[in-house]
Nucleic acid binder design. Structure first.
Length: 266
DNA sequence: ATGGTTGCTTAGCAA
């Protein structure tokens, strides 16, 4: 940080990297460029022993990981040392899928969450998705208070509003935008979570994911399905929110772009 | 268009 003021900002990122090893060069360049304080990653597609620990640490970050071979996998990178690390929802035998990781950093409870995609509507994966979102709400209710400083950052695999979908009519009957999925996410947020990006960019039209197929990115056929959800004490500190759309361009991009929110803590 | 592209793992699954 430059300048002479003493403001204390916390820059938080969420990014579904779709394989941390394939995306390592991009990730390291991003860390260098953005100098974020907290970076929540999803879809590592790597177990802990294949996570690029040395490169992350050399970039100046601590990390906590809930890894998994081939599928899923989440991590939190942080400038400050993470405390009270928790993997999964510790309430059942459903947690064979590595989709949730919690850490406490700089006095803020931060979760990196990779919500289930849901396959197709009506499938077992669809029911798992809706149930997983309900379980996450229960987990938050059991462990935290809406008055805490808390963030749920991740790929929610649900778009909230019509303005978060380039073509809402065409996506209306898909797992990413079906009414039941939107209702499940709304019910989770009703516990006490605010979409700070939506709050700061109320006009919408900004997306975080574009399908690899059918030229979705050049056509602008995107959805905002990556969210930084904040409790009220955190949401009121959010000052800027953007998507690093350039990360979807060029060679070997993830299908998701990073979402970046700055909180003014002082 | 029950299509299409990418990644992990090696033909099929998941997204």
């Amino acid at each position: 940080m430059t300048g002479t003021t003493q403001e204390v900002a916390l820059k938080v990122v969420t990014w579904n990297v779709n394989s941390v090893r394939t995306r390592l060069d991009r990730l390291l360049a991003f860390l260098e460029r953005e100098d974020a304080d907290i970076v929540c990653l999803q879809e590592l597609k790597a177990s802990e022993d294949r996570f690029p620990s040395e490169a992350i640490e050399a970039a100046g970050y601590h990390f906590a990981i809930n890894g998994q071979k081939t599928y899923n996998g989440v991590a939190v990178l942080s400038k400050s040392e993470p405390r009270e690390i928790s993997c999964g929802m510790d309430d059942s035998d459903w947690d064979d899928q590595a989709r949730l990781l919690g850490v406490t950093v700089d006095g803020v409870r931060v979760y990196s969450a990779y919500f289930p995609n849901g396959g197709s509507i009506g499938s077992d994966k669809w029911e798992f998705k809706l149930g997983w979102i309900r379980r996450l709400k229960q987990y938050l209710a059991d462990h935290h208070d809406p008055g805490d400083k808390l963030l749920v950052c991740g790929d929610s695999n649900v778009a909230i509003a019509d303005s978060d979908v380039a073509n809402p009519k065409r996506w209306a009957d898909t797992v990413l935008f079906a009414e039941a999925a939107r209702a499940a996410l709304k019910d989770l947020m009703d516990w006490g979570l605010i979409d700070v990006f939506g709050k700061l960019n109320p006009d919408g039209g900004i997306y975080s994911w574009w399908d690899y197929r059918q030229l979705a990115f050049p056509k602008g056929d995107g959805l905002r399905i990556d969210h930084i959800l904040a409790t009220e004490p955190m949401a009121q500190l959010a000052s800027e929110a953007r998507v690093d759309r350039d990360e979807r361009k060029g060679k070997q991009p993830s299908d998701h772009a990073p979402v970046i929110v700055t909180f003014d803590l002082s």
